[in-house]
Design a binder for these strands. Sequence first.
DNA 1: TAGTTAAATCAAAAAAAATTGATTTATTTT
DNA 2: AAAATAAATCAATTTTTTTTGATTTAACTA
Lengths: 108, 108
Amino acid sequence: MDNIIPLKDTSLDETFSKYEAKFKALADQKRLHILNLLCKQESTCVCDLSELIEMPQSKLSYHLKILLDAGLILKETKGTWSYYRINQEEINHLLSPELCCLFRPSCC
Amino acid sequence: MDNIIPLKDTSLDETFSKYEAKFKALADQKRLHILNLLCKQESTCVCDLSELIEMPQSKLSYHLKILLDAGLILKETKGTWSYYRINQEEINHLLSPELCCLFRPSCC
DNA sequence: TAGTTAAATCAAAAAAAATTGATTTATTTT
DNA sequence: AAAATAAATCAATTTTTTTTGATTTAACTA
């Protein structure tokens, strides 16, 4: 019968760890810019986004993966193309209504 | 007559830059833990916090400075002591009501 | 006043994250 | 089928952030 009285609050640690990943994903100008563009675009493929944001493809893919892993965006693959869009629900759970406006189409 | 039609939206860049700093401050487990503790503590000096969180003083001061520079906490100095407390207003502007609960005393 | 304590800062080292250009895999087009 | 395109991944490098322990400055305390 171990761990009846845990020495530390593990669930709180896990909570912090979870949000750390999400805030890390948000903690970058380029990624905030990507999120802002994805808002206005419905669903966009990497090559179009790459032109829009003026960023080389491999670099963009790197940043998209970080946003995807954090659950802030969603991906749908059609053939060779990957279409990304914002995960509005997740953004809404995370950010203030006021801030959501930066990352929500036709709000405010 | 320069810059009548700016090539880029500078104000949006500035906005992203501002939030980048704030999210960077939030993008760390230890700092989230500090914020959570400061919520429950009213106002706390570094030495007490250092014991609570089991973190050496210089390391704690480093992280407190990051939170302070981002405007997420406030500092008041009394003699040799520095008392830190959460900047509730700023947190509320930034995070969802649901998330604010993690960093707000007696909420939820 | 001398000794102690609080907390910020510093410089060096370690760790983590970002950038770059090339490669790979799969798909589409000609 | 061959050439071209989309996008993920990789390895090497660069940049940024964090950690560590020591030092400094100021203010308490005995």
